[in-house]
Nucleic acid binder design. Structure first.
Length: 215
DNA sequence: GACCAGATGTACT
DNA sequence: GTACATCTGGTCT
């Protein structure tokens, strides 16, 4: 776990503006690495540093929920303006959260797959059932559980800074810290499963030989 | 690390 | 009605 933020806590972390999200999805995905996902909860404030994301490129992407223009109640948020949260339920027991990108009518998003705790570690550990350690937030459903993200946040506006938002604390991620890999769990998507749309930030630096989970 | 059961919402026939 | 999902945690090796 990183050292805690100094000083004023969550209120010093201003939400990114909508323009950040309205750009190209792979650009947004890459630039989300190293940013802070901030959550205000009754049991305390939480901030985590985003370390793993995946881009989903809308109607032309067989792995995306909006492939070929599919538009349903579930994915309606993806069709809206960038800067909103798309939360869906899967495998009968897990939530996953995405950040919607581009403009209204262009249904693309970035799946948040992993993070490390920066602020509010004990709150996260408690929400994860007391399981601390490096696997605390290393999966999309773990991230949602640890941060108290569920269906009630589907469609939330990330630019307001009320319940949940994304902020920068100025950390820059050198290219050498970022790896581009195929996406996870989308084998059904044919060739698109191989597209290198997964971005992983190695906070230990490029020298680290540690493996990235393949799931 | 590899393997697999689990539980139910969602999309589609 | 049915097939399957942007996964996790436990067990076994």
């Amino acid at each position: 776990m990183e050292k805690p933020l100094s000083g004023r806590g969550l209120d010093a972390l201003a939400p990114l503006e909508r323009g950040f999200y309205q750009r190209g999805t792979t650009t947004v995905a890459r630039e989300l690495l190293g940013k802070l996902l901030v959550r205000r909860l009754p049991d305390g404030g939480i901030a985590v540093r985003i370390t793993e994301v995946e881009a989903y490129l809308g109607v032309g992407d067989p792995a995306a929920h909006t492939y070929r223009g599919r538009r349903t109640n579930r994915n309606e948020v993806m069709w809206g303006d960038g800067g909103h949260l798309y939360v869906y339920f899967t495998y009968g027991m897990h939530y996953c959260c995405n950040v919607v990108t581009r403009l209204e009518g262009v249904p693309e998003a970035v799946l948040l797959r992993g993070a490390v705790a920066v602020e509010g570690g004990p709150v996260i550990v408690a929400r994860r059932g007391g399981k601390a350690g490096r696997h605390l937030l290393d999966g999309p459903a773990k991230l949602c559980k640890g941060m108290g993200i569920d269906r009630t946040l589907n469609g939330a506006d990330l630019t307001l800074g009320d319940e949940l938002w994304v902020a920068s604390d100025g950390l820059e991620c050198p290219r050498a810290w970022v790896r581009r890999l195929p996406r996870v769990g989308v084998g059904y998507a044919g060739g698109a499963a191989e597209w290198p749309l997964r971005f992983v930030l190695d906070l230990d630096g490029p020298a680290s030989s540690r493996r990235v989970s393949r799931r």
